[in-house]
Design a protein around this nucleic acid. Structure first.
Lengths: 208, 208
DNA sequence: AGATTATAGTATCTATTCGAAACTAATGTC
DNA sequence: GACATTAGTTTCGAATAGATACTATAATCT
């Protein structure tokens, strides 16, 4: 029945929303709000090109002003340290303190990770794939950067073979070499690389 | 690699969160905030046992006080109408106005529905199942009702055969008959009934 | 029956988050 | 050099958050 399929896609969308809210949007755990947890989580996962207030604002779908406030708050609580960028004197880099890294083990979000981990391993890959595809489509519709890791990014260069005086990988967007450990950091400049057959226009033509 | 599987479950959790936020947590569309959209969406989907301030508070993972404020706000804006319950004089039933039903077509959440709808139909069912299972686990860990529809609820009684003077279905929890159209409404009293075994691709076909 | 306890909902307080706008400083472009 | 762009902050008013105290009704227990 056509109606059934339509119901399924709506159910999927509702469950994604509900799941995200229940997992993260709840109560003060360790005295932090949902958004504050999101900030710490983000700076723990973002690669070195993306640990800025603006990048977090884009990731979280809020304004730079709001992001600035929340970050300042966490800074005075001793969870973040700020450093001015040498390359761009306007820019600011934020780094988690040990206090922040310690508290992240109690992130309520971890219950969602456990739930995902209890899925049959054979479907986890497909599941992650499908979600990344949905994210690409939604982000494109809303004119937002999709975020993602180097692993499937268009800008990733290199085959993993370490040659003389070179790192095995590099980022074609920033023209910077990449260490192996950096490949799974989340990046604001992510562009879907491997086909993944996304419906609709892909890169470059986001609606304004 | 073992590390890859662990990465996948974390990636799934991150994507669920990110997707939900990008799809709903953004900007003022039609002058409504993300939470206000959530309220309208909830009362559009909740069954007649669940259209109360308390049920919404439980669904949204907030307190009754906060829910009360937001609902009052939407009421004065003409999106909701309130009625006292006859059965329980403490309780309040909320109903969407035509204004609310009209505006719901512009719900930013619909972009997420479209994204889910563009997934291969063959995986949508499994996908919805997996998400419902994850929700069950997370909700249980956090001590929250999971919410769900009659279709897979333990309390659903009846086989769809309409007998004399009876509706084809009934709810064993509330001891109330259920109309066919009511079966896909979201309920706060939902308890997972059928196991919902998620079928994956054949074991062994998975990358090691 | 009466006393106690639990539940549904509201009102009030303070803190946080939000979007918008105005602003500074550094960078880019022509 | 003039101009626009970008990164980040600050300020404002509104909305949301959790916590607490409160009223009214319902359920439970003698």
């Amino acid at each position: 029945m056509i109606k059934e399929l339509k119901m399924d896609s709506r159910a999927i969308a509702e469950l994604v929303l509900h799941l995200g809210r229940i997992a993260s949007g709840e109560g003060l755990v360790e005295g932090l709000t949902a958004v504050q947890w999101a900030v710490l989580r983000y700076f723990a996962r973002a690669n070195r090109f993306s640990r800025t207030p603006s990048a977090f604002a884009a990731f979280h779908g809020t304004t730079r002003g709001t992001a600035s406030q929340t970050i300042k708050n966490l800074e005075t609580q001793g969870y973040l340290t700020r450093m001015r960028s040498e390359a761009d004197r306007r820019s600011v880099r934020l780094v988690l303190t040990d206090k922040a890294r310690g508290i992240l083990a109690n992130d309520p979000f971890e219950s969602l990770v456990r739930a995902a981990d209890s899925l049959p391993p054979s479907v986890q890959g497909h599941f992650a794939n499908a979600l990344q595809r949905m994210l690409g489509q939604v982000a494109w519709e809303r004119g937002k950067p999709p975020f993602g890791t180097c692993a499937s990014c268009k800008h990733l260069e290199g085959d993993g073979a370490s040659r003389e005086g070179q790192t095995p990988y590099a980022c074609g967007f920033s023209s910077e070499p990449l260490l192996l450990e950096e490949l799974d950091g989340v990046c604001i400049n992510f562009v879907q690389g491997k086909p993944m057959t996304v419906k609709g226009p892909v890169a470059g033509a986001a609606p304004r």
